[in-house]
Each structure stands twice: as structure tokens, then as C-alpha cells.
Design a protein around this nucleic acid. Sequence first.
DNA 1: CATCATTCTTGATAAACATCAAGCACGAAG
DNA 2: CTTCGTGCTTGATGTTTATCAAGAATGATG
Lengths: 232, 232
Amino acid sequence: MRSEDLPTVRALDLFAAMSEESFDILMQGAFLQWFPPQVTLIEEGGGADFLHVVVEGAVEMVARGNDRETTMAIMEPVSTFILAAVLRDAVYLMTARTLERSRILMIPAESVRDAMDRDPAFMRAIVWELSGAFRGAVKALKSQKLRTGVERLSNWLLVQHDEQGAAGTVRLAFDKRTLAALLGMTPENLSRAFGTLRAYGVDVNGREVVLNQLDDLRRLAKPDPLMDDGRV
Amino acid sequence: MRSEDLPTVRALDLFAAMSEESFDILMQGAFLQWFPPQVTLIEEGGGADFLHVVVEGAVEMVARGNDRETTMAIMEPVSTFILAAVLRDAVYLMTARTLERSRILMIPAESVRDAMDRDPAFMRAIVWELSGAFRGAVKALKSQKLRTGVERLSNWLLVQHDEQGAAGTVRLAFDKRTLAALLGMTPENLSRAFGTLRAYGVDVNGREVVLNQLDDLRRLAKPDPLMDDGRV
DNA sequence: CATCATTCTTGATAAACATCAAGCACGAAG
DNA sequence: CTTCGTGCTTGATGTTTATCAAGAATGATG
């Protein structure tokens, strides 16, 4: 790993509090590398060799089974994935695939476990990360079990709208096929769901979505912080 | 808390490795208490006051939203719940309700956070617990997104069958209403799903389920360790 | 700018699932 | 033993979602 990249990595939440010494050891076997779009970084069922951190770009977490495939989450900077598998030395539950050109930090699993045992500050950061990941998964499961597809789409749009500055528009950062899988529906049904939302002031134009009647959309979506708010 | 109960608690995975001193402090404000069935222990949206541990009995984790209600998980001895909320000092994402008479250990959230900061062995146990909880939630989400109701029921039966000694029968530990919610369907559809499984050798008699054609059932269920195996 | 492959949309149909409405079965209480 | 309530089942119907098939739009490439 190039020394000029070290400060970038050091600034990430997961590594900010740990000791200089632990950080140095942790980084010795680490790589920080660019990957092209649509590259499979890890494969579901494989063994946990490296902890991965998305430093730039975006990574899709995919799950397969029963001859189907679905998108479990989109990981954006700065977030880790497969931390749980690394800590338990277990197989991956999901496949990770770059959505766009992405810079990924890869740290040998063994080093992560060693550093955790050596540095309580690092372990504390891991606890924070893991508990957040667990709560995210619970929210996703709630959304999937308690809402219809149209409702999931509405709430996803409202969350994106907030995150993108609440300017009345949402720009999709990935294609609709992926969005459909993320929301737990087929591309066909996503298309129809957007059609349904036209009556609530949602205008779609390629990857640009305009929300003209936010109040109506909110009334339909019935947003719930315990499912939608990433900070809760 | 009665001193005769201390060894029981001490033997739990989460507390087994921590120092004597940390354990004593942790237990000072703790309660170990019996609750009757159908008692709400914590309420979704409430603040994380206590870490809870199911020592005996069974607790249902329920999520509400969108005028619906679903069962997210059944917690059996010995497992914790709302650990993530306690560690982040965040609100609960789920309601917890006893299914049967249950003995619950309750530890003040503040004490848990203090003990974690003081005792690395305890923090390591927390990391193990959290990473397991995360992987459990991911598996549940996969099952919900990739399988139909009949498939979820089939796989649930096969897992129970294994856990109950693989003797060709499964005993339901709770009512079918709860099972339906756990599997993400209505009681009516659970009933019909059992009807579908009759053709695969599944005979239901109250809470006794007999699996007569395991091979056929497995062929239908297509079990996947990455969704079904609690040890993976 | 034309070509081509891909993504997206739309329609028709079928499967999965939910809802409403009875009725049945079983266990608890008198 | 009877009564009653609750949980379960079954049927009829409607909604939601998936699948299959075709066209339209889009964007990359030469």
C-alpha cells in the first residue's frame, strides 16, 4: 500500500481511534486498490480472507439461492463489508460486486482479528460498526415484511431525497434493475410501481426523478424512523 | 439478584470469559426475574435501559409498522436481545414479549457499556454475539426475499427436525399464529401451506408434526446452509 | 450519425399472498 | 358433561407480485 494513502485510511471511523502501532501492523498486509465496474470482489460461500472497506465508488451486496438472486444492500463510502464473517472466521453470506469504478481497502482477516485483540479502541470501533450493521439488517427485514413494493419504493425515494439535499429531485446512482432487486421486486414491477407513483407527483426521466407532491408521497409512504432513518 | 443464581449467569457465553471484578460490578444492578407469558418486556421505539438475556423460557421479537405486525425472531435460552441498541444507546427497533413463563436477566445498559470499556474479554464476547446476530438477520432477510412461504415453512420444519433430534417428528413450541408471523405469512396461508406439504409427507396434528417423506420434503425445500444453518 | 446491444416499459397471464367470512375443533371453566 | 372462547381451518375473492413476451427507449461504439 502506498504511504500517501495512509492518511485517508486513518481518517475512517473504524481506524481513527486505534493506536499508531496497531494501525501500522494492520496496514502491513493491506491493499488499497482500484477495481473496474462489475467486478466480483468476494463470492458467497467463500472463506473470509480479507476485510473490505469501500473507500470510493459503490459495491453491491448480492445474495443467491433457490435459483434466484437479490441485492441485499449497496455499500457506499465509507463502509466495511463482511466484517462479521472475518471476525467469526466464517464463510461469506453474500457476494460483493462493484457497481462502478471503486477503490477498495483490503486487510487480511488474520490481521484484523489480531489488531482487535491487541487494541481495545479498535475493538470498540468494531462493536460500533457491527451494532450498526445489525440494526440496518433488522430495518431492511422490517421493511420487507411489513410493506408492499410501492411503499418500499416511496420510502426509499424519500430517504434519497433527504440525503441528496432535499431539492425536490432524486438522482439514481445505479440502474433500475439493481434498484428493483434492492427493494425486493422485479424490474417489471419497479416500472409499474413508478407508474403508480405518478399519481403522487413522482416524475421519472431516466435516472432523474422529480418529486412534485412531497406531502402526497409522504402520506402514501408513511415513513417510519425505525425502518428508514439510517441515524437511528 | 440472588447470589445462588450467579453461577448460572456466569456460565453464559457472554459472561464466561470476563474478569471476576467486571462480572461483580456488572451484576450489581442486575435483576434475574420470572415473567408470566405474554408480558411485554420492552417496547419498540423505547430507550435502551437494560440489556436482556433469556435464561429460561422464550421471547418473541415483534416489529410493528404500517398498521401491521410481524414476528422477527424467537429468542430461546441462552440468548440476548437488544444488545445493539444498548451499545449504541439507541431506541429499540423491536418489541419483546414473553411467549411462555420466562426467566429474564436484566442488566442496566450503563453497566454493560462500562464493563465493555473496562474488560476486553467481555468486549470480545460482545463482538462474537453481535456478529452472530448480524449474520442471523442477513439469513432471515435472504430467506424472506428468495423464497416463497411454502419453501420457508419446509426449511423451518427441516431445521426444527434436526434440532429436535431428527426423530421424524417436530413439536411446535408456540402457536401457529406466531409461526405464521415468523415465516412472514398470515395464519390462513400457513394453514394452506401445511396443506400443500401433505403431498410431501407432512402430517399435522395440533402441535405435533410428522415428517414421513424427508427426501421429498428436502427436494422441495432445497435447504441452503447459508440461510438455514445456525452454526454457519 | 447509424448500429447494435442493453435497459426499460407495457401488456397479458399466472402464481403467491392477503382479506373477509364462516365453520370446526379443542381445551379451559363451570 | 356442557358451554364457551380461542385458535385453527376452509372457501371465496381481491390484491400483490412474478413470469413471459414483445416493443420502445437509451446509450455506447464504430
